[in-house]
Write a protein that binds this DNA or RNA. Structure first.
Lengths: 230, 230
DNA sequence: TCAGCATGTGTTGCATGCAATACTGCAGTC
DNA sequence: GACTGCAGTATTGCATGCAACACATGCTGA
């Protein structure tokens, strides 16, 4: 075991630090709107500025930060409207995926999805919100992947990652959470029966109600923050 | 006037070199599949390796190159199937845009589109293929922009840029070219009448026939190249 | 003849130092 | 009291050098 504070020896330093900073942003550790100081991160992650600055360029491309020349990187601030715009795009992308997935999904893919769904249901029973959330995201990505269109998978993954943080608030309400699990079961069933048009509508409804719940949770949260700080 | 071979003083060197390399790729100067040597580009563009490597990270994010650790950057090779996959995504994105654009387009945006369309028609009359191509791309982007969804605009722009090179072949055939201009006129007309559903179908048909033409041209081109080289 | 290996060359990954730019605080003026 | 001008400081942008890695070539032994 090495005595370093972090253990960057997994691929290039650049890739490592990109993942680290990405996690810091999506977890909220780096607050939206805050400026990112290179020196601070460099010392914390035990790397030099070069790979960090490369990471910045990647994260800017992913829409997670903005870089102003000579004035540093700041974490992107997404308004509720911005997130809603992205959700609409994601719904649109899944609509495209739905019909294709119903046609093209392989049996192996369907089995993998069933397996993921069972694990997700178990996470729900255990009340393991984080684990549930990740499995949920994975399932949606796999449905899109089943459409066998790499461009679609890539775009969906990137857009999904951008707003991941904001969708986390969706399942705070136990009732909504239970319904989401049930919707998923029906969605996979419909995919297995390869009913593309129906699948499309179910996914759309699923996302709209999920986002509705997340939106209410976020707005309440923002209200509290607005009162608390300033 | 400076006596440098190139004039990089426009924003940061990093931004400059990114645009340069992007142009080299979309113009085909850097051939798909070929490895990009850092030293060669560095000397040609009169900059150091640091901004070039940052540019590589950006272009990798845009899907124009791939970087293998310790083994350099290579220009991405897109098969006809890859391009077709992207086109399907673009059609899907424009479908989402169509209904929203019909609802939300401002008068100013409609006027700007009409202006662009007139200039594009003039370019067609002049047989100015390059100019026509750019105006055409701009029009489609502006239609998407009119949907007033930034996420949609961003994703569309990025995906569109990725395969720009391949769509250029679409208007070699004079008959197809003339029809494309006419389709555009009707599309803008439909947008002005704010008939979203119809607009969606027209855009879809427009792209499918455009891509069909481009595809035939590309396949012929590939056949010739296959015979010529090797 | 050919697989396996050692060696050499070229290229990439990263750390560091310097120059240029943006930000901060303070003095001076109206 | 607010606003402008101006150092001083902090931070970023970039060039460069060194170390690590990948690839190519030739060599050895079977």
């Amino acid at each position: 075991m090495k005595d370093q504070t972090v253990e960057p020896r997994r691929g290039t330093r650049s890739a490592f630090v990109t993942q680290q900073v990405r996690d810091m942003i999506t977890s909220g550790e780096l607050e939206p709107g805050s400026r990112i100081n290179e020196r601070v991160l460099v010392e914390r992650l035990n790397i030099s500025r070069t790979p960090l600055r490369e990471a910045f360029k990647i994260l800017e491309g992913e829409g997670l930060i903005t870089i102003r020349p000579n004035a540093g990187a700041t974490v992107v601030v997404l308004s509720t409207e911005d997130v809603e715009a992205s959700i609409e795009v994601l719904i649109g992308l899944e609509s495209i995926a739905a019909e294709r997935a119903a046609r093209n999904a392989t049996e192996a893919e369907l089995d993998a999805l069933t397996d993921l769904h069972e694990r997700m249901t178990q996470a729900w029973r255990d009340g393991a919100l984080m684990s549930y959330f990740h499995l949920n995201q994975t399932i949606h990505q796999k449905i899109v992947d089943a459409a066998q269109n790499q461009a679609l998978s890539r775009v969906y993954a990137s857009e999904s990652a951008r707003i991941r943080r904001f969708r986390f608030a969706g399942n705070r309400d136990p009732e909504r959470w239970a319904r989401a699990v049930e919707e998923h079961a029906r969605i996979l069933d419909t995919l297995r029966r390869r009913e593309g048009a129906l699948l499309r509508e179910m996914l759309r409804a699923h996302h709209l109600s999920g986002w509705g719940a997340a939106r209410r949770a976020l707005e309440m949260q923002q209200e509290v923050e607005g009162r608390g700080e300033t």
